[in-house]
Computed example of a mutant assay.
Amino acid sequence: MGETRSRTVLFFDSGIGGLGVLREARVLMPDWRYVYVADDAAFPFGGWDEDRLRAHLTGLFRDLLEVHRPAMTVIACNTASTLAINHLREVFPGETFVGTVPAIKPAAERTRSGLVSVLATPGTVKRQYTRELIRQYAGKCHVRLVGSEHLARLAEEYVREGYVDEAAVRREIAPCFVKMDGRATDIVVLACTHYPFLVNRMRKTAPWPVDWIDPAEAIARRAASLQGTLGVLRAADGVDLAVFTSGHPQSSVVRLMRGFGLHLADIDNPERVP
């Protein structure tokens, strides 16, 4: 840790979900360099055994932190954050990690009906971390946890192809909508960073209007608030990068990354831009 680090922030997600967070961070942290890592070789995280996924993330971050030397790392993924962020902080004590957790506290503060749903991956739904957030912040609410098997994949397909099966979206979000004692769900927490890409389709297919809470801005604000704790940082060199662990992203995804101002890095030499 003797060297002075540059203003480089590493964003990590299983796919394209973290791009929404990156977009918000650029507004608040315009003089930083961004390295976006999509672990598409392991997508989706929801189907992984917990111990295997934690070990996978630990090994992957050991390499990423060594290569890119970020001053800050944003894990823009609820599944990875709720499973592994505390473990990563223990393994890499000199690193600054910003996690992504379900926005249960603001949902509990904003609901009028007291009926809140948390739409997440199955992995996030079953975590004790998520249930502890409910116990701590939403004890007076009825919170329904909805684990979607397919919504992250549908979001990836929509971003790549510009089309999504609206009937499939409707099926995935249907369990979020609850009526009880004359009240109805009025807030749905989007507890996966992929889901906001589909929010317009969700609004269209929902049985009644609700507030959809997108965590991107709050995550970006948290990252920006930590800038003053990082010590002296030198100006970052190089362009903003996109790194895909598969080494073979689809051409549509490459175009998407370019639209976000990210240059595709060579997986075998991540600091070299082809």
Rank of each mutant, 00 (worst) to 15 (best):
T8S: 12
H150P: 15
V199A: 13
V243S: 04
S148M: 06
E161F: 07
V143G: 12
R69G: 02
I267V: 13
C77L: 03
D13F: 12
A155Y: 00
H87A: 03
A236L: 05
H142Y: 03
E172V: 13
T96W: 07
L119Y: 04
A120Y: 05
G2T: 13
S251T: 06
P93V: 10
V253D: 10
D165H: 06
Q128P: 00
Q128F: 06
N269Q: 14
P209M: 12
I219S: 00
R69A: 13
D268Q: 01
V101R: 09
D51C: 01
T100S: 09
W32Q: 04
N78F: 11
D181I: 04
D63W: 04
E161G: 07
A41T: 08
V116G: 14
D214P: 00
P175K: 02
E156I: 06
M29G: 11
G231I: 09
Y129W: 08
A167N: 08
D266F: 08
T205R: 15
L151F: 03
T229P: 09
E161Y: 11
G123Y: 01
R171K: 05
P175D: 07
R222Y: 06
L190M: 01
H194A: 02
G94D: 06
R127I: 08
A220S: 14
A216Q: 03
D31W: 07
T111L: 08
V189E: 10
E50L: 15
M180Y: 00
A224P: 13
T124P: 00
R171D: 14
L226H: 13
R170Y: 00
H150Y: 15
D31I: 02
G231Q: 04
G59E: 11
Q250Y: 11
P93Q: 12
A216F: 06
L57D: 15
H68A: 09
V189Q: 03
V178C: 06
R62V: 08
V254M: 00
R69H: 10
P215Y: 04
R62G: 15
C176T: 13
S246E: 10
V253Q: 03
H68S: 05
I134T: 07
L133T: 13
V199T: 10
V239W: 00
H263A: 12
P30Q: 08
R255W: 07
L233M: 03
P122Y: 14
L88K: 01
L115W: 07
A218T: 09
Y195W: 01
D31H: 05
Y36T: 03
A206G: 06
Y36P: 13
L262K: 00
A216S: 15
Y129S: 01
P70G: 07
R170V: 04
D31S: 08
G20R: 05
R135E: 07
F177E: 08
F12A: 00
V232G: 03
D63H: 11
G139M: 02
T185G: 09
C176L: 13
T79I: 07
Q227R: 05
A108L: 05
L119F: 07
C176M: 14
E149W: 06
D211G: 03
S225F: 15
G59V: 08
P196L: 09
A76M: 07
C176A: 15
R255M: 09
V9E: 02
P215S: 11
A41E: 14
E172K: 03
Y163P: 00
P70S: 12
W32K: 03
R201D: 13
A103C: 04
V27A: 15
K179Q: 14
E95Y: 00
A138K: 05
A38K: 11
V98Y: 08
L22P: 03
L119E: 02
R112Q: 09
